[in-house]
């Protein structure tokens, strides 16, 4: 496993640079050299307010959500041994959206700002347990990845129908809010929300990183992994639950941001190979940098308005991915 440290170092530098640029630009331009003085309170006024209360929490949220989604995407691809696997393949986004849209349509969004993330999180957990129950009922004691995918697709389809039902009875304003939420955006970032997110992301990321070697062995089939001493069922269940919790927490605070969790793992695999000891931490760093770039573009490109971040991740991510795929094919 050569080159893990230098490659992760490269990504860390990329992430740091992106973060500095992202903190610096926006509605109010804050030169990189003035960031520290502004934080220390040596610069007053709206620039400091924007920096401390809006922009920095948003940058931190982008890092957490982008990292969590890409890490979860890598995990689901390893767990399900399916290249189409991504964080939302098992219906979590559908459950979260039902929770969030339900809160918005009920008109609670204006009165209780925390009701939307809470609703989304509860919905995501509901979807996770539902999919697990269905997969267990259909697949017996073993967690069969094919049954899991089918269960996820079916549960997701049901939730989508519920979303459409909710939207069709929504009034104009909550309809707008719901659509905006479902496209994914990071404008709800707060320090307290980020602290809550960190409670999931830090231990979740550590647990998933510990599964790197078992994931490598699982890629050779469950039989081979078993013969090499992997606790196959326990590993699969742990990976499923932890990755789902990461996605649930990310969706709760940022809505449904697509493509990060699909494209970043594949791009890294194309560039640096399938070894999970590099792939898992690299996914987190690259996913964080990618979402941060996308969110910065979303913030500034049509200023003073802003685009939903999920639109940028798809618009920028798909051509990038196709480029990597084609280049790989030519070689």
């Amino acid at each position: 496993m050569t080159g893990v440290a230098p490659r992760l170092g490269t990504l860390l530098v990329l992430l740091t640079g992106t973060a500095l640029v992202s903190v610096s630009i926006g509605a109010a331009r804050i030169p990189v050299l003035e960031i520290i003085p502004a934080l220390l309170g040596q610069i007053e006024g709206t620039s400091r307010s924007i920096l401390v209360h809006l922009r920095l929490p948003r940058v931190v949220l982008a890092i957490g959500v982008g990292g969590a989604l890409a890490l979860a995407g890598t995990t689901f691809q390893a767990l399900l041994r399916n290249p189409l696997a991504e964080p939302y393949v098992l219906g979590i986004s559908g459950g979260a959206a039902v929770g969030a849209v339900g809160v918005l349509v009920a008109g609670l969004g204006a009165r209780l700002p925390w009701a939307v993330p809470l609703g989304a999180f509860v919905g995501a957990l509901l979807a996770m347990f539902l999919v697990l129950r269905v997969a267990r009922a259909a697949g017996g004691s073993r967690l069969d990845s094919r049954v899991l995918i089918l269960a996820g697709v079916v549960v997701g389809a049901f939730f989508n129908a519920v979303i459409l039902l909710l939207l069709s009875i929504a009034d104009v304003e909550s309809f707008r809010s719901a659509i905006f939420w479902m496209m994914g955006n990071l404008s709800g970032a707060t320090w307290s929300g980020n602290a809550l997110l960190a409670l999931y992301i830090l231990p979740g990321t550590a647990l998933l990183l510990a599964l790197a070697r078992p994931f490598d062995l699982l890629a050779r089939g469950e039989d081979v992994a078993f013969h090499l001493g992997v606790r196959v069922e326990r590993t699969k269940l742990l990976a499923y639950v932890v990755a789902s919790l990461l996605v649930a927490a990310a969706v709760a605070f940022a809505g449904v941001i697509g493509f990060v969790g699909l494209i970043v793992p594949h791009a890294l695999r194309l560039l640096w190979g399938p070894g999970h000891r590099l792939l898992l931490p690299a996914s987190f760093l690259a996913g964080a940098a990618f979402l941060l770039m996308a969110d910065t573009v979303a913030r500034v490109v049509i200023a003073p308005a802003e685009l939903p971040t999920g639109v940028i991740t798809a618009l920028a991510g798909v051509p990038l991915f196709v480029f990597l795929l084609v280049r790989r094919g030519v070689q």
Partner: peptide
């Protein structure tokens, strides 16, 4: 001075 009739605006711009 907005460029459209019913612009969606960012919180940063509002604070600024």
């Amino acid at each position: 001075d907005a460029r459209s009739s019913w612009p969606q605006i960012s919180m940063e711009e509002i604070v600024r």
